[in-house]
Design a protein around this nucleic acid. Structure first.
Lengths: 226, 226
DNA sequence: TAGATTGTTAATCGATTAACAATC
DNA sequence: TAGATTGTTAATCGATTAACAATC
């Protein structure tokens, strides 16, 4: 029914909700699209377009009711039941993910974590039970889990993903620094920290160079004035 | 001189380099664009277009020389000097980042890490010296640091970023789950794990629903056949 | 040479931005 | 009412995809 919504729109709605929650905590009752845009870092028109998909309407000259909008966004993006999620890989990154999500969104719940390393399994870390890799298939099936977080070394990732896809997983977040091949019905979101860091370094350098250049040629004023 | 290259292109080049490095380790000497595309998950034409910005040419019917291409990508995206980077926030996520990058890319070097929590500072974690937040300005200036990784709680992030921008930082990776406001000359790459997880959960649900629907209406075959 | 892949240009696609009548 | 903001459509922009002559 909601037609096709882009992944970026969903990610932005998630961000708006966080901003709105903060606003609600500060007892702000209404917000205009341009206020939300200023906080989220976009344009007012984009915010309005994004919010439209939730079906909730603002009112002219009064903007959006914060609490009702939070409700509408939640109805739209949250699954009907809290989504059970598994984490594969309990190394440094995996443990950080556990800590990061521990008791955060009730709509998403890390149900189990897996690792090949025996010293890490059959324990409870940040409230999450850890299992050896062998029990992965069973638990996925038992608990009807459809979403997984990949936090294993790059060399292990594809093997793990193949198992997950076989077991019926439909969505993945991939923290491993390698591209994954998956069947077309599986949605993958890549979080490539290495690429992020290298990209930031590249642009920081570019900008440093162009600043230096402009400074050297005395052409600093033009771009920076407006 | 290299004109304007999009952030996505740079991120993809970073990914290609990693694939090429693996290929080189396996003594693969040449690769075609379609082989690289299959491993990176794109199209051959896109790979060719991306590689063009490095200035390195493949040759028809022989493809790209792996080692020379790695060299060309490195020349293009790596800064002339290893880029010194600071990490702000040594909580769970910060420590995971330290562990993750510890001794990885020589082109990028986490020089120092900062936190307000005294028990975490004036130590060495994963080979990186940690400092109290107060010394941030001094060290940024001393070591001419232009890139920072933000791994502090959302409530602290904007304050930290303001300090960083004042100190002349030009690029940021933001792991804090809040949008940041920065001067226009500062490049920001957001890594929003909460939004990623919620987006994956949303699409996993959508797909589960449409599978169920098609199965119910007996219309499973059509889309999946081709 | 014939076949395949290259660099590069043209066509397509999708998302963002700007504009505007409707509305409180 | 006048003013401001809304939902929504049209124009713009940029990136991706497809196509093709050049080349090994």
């Amino acid at each position: 029914m909601p037609g096709n919504v882009s992944d970026k729109t969903v990610a932005r709605l998630s961000m708006y909700r966080r901003i709105l929650n903060r606003a609600a905590a500060e007892r702000t009752e209404r917000l205009f699209s341009h206020e939300l845009a200023a906080m989220a870092g976009g344009t007012a028109a984009q915010v309005r377009r994004d919010l439209m998909v939730t079906g909730y309407s603002g009112s002219p000259n009064k903007g959006y009711a914060v609490n009702e909008l939070i409700e509408a966004i939640s109805d739209f993006i949250d699954p009907p039941e809290p989504e059970p999620v598994v984490l594969i890989g309990i190394g440094n990154l995996g443990r950080a993910i556990l800590a990061y999500f521990s008791g955060r969104r009730p709509g998403l719940l890390i149900q189990a974590a897996f690792d090949v390393e025996q010293s890490l399994t059959n324990r409870v870390i940040n409230g999450v039970r850890t299992y050896p890799m062998e029990s992965l298939g069973d638990i996925l099936e038992e608990q009807k889990i459809r979403v997984a977080i990949i936090a294993v070394p790059g060399s292990e990732a594809q093997g793990v993903v193949d198992k997950l896809a076989d077991a019926g997983v439909l969505g993945l977040i991939n923290f491993a620094p390698v591209p994954l091949r998956v069947p077309s019905h599986v949605y993958v979101e890549n979080v490539d920290m290495t690429a992020s860091l290298e990209t930031v370094a590249y642009f920081a350098n570019q900008r440093a160079a162009s600043f230096g250049e402009r400074r050297a040629t005395g052409d600093l004023s033009r771009k920076e004035e407006r």
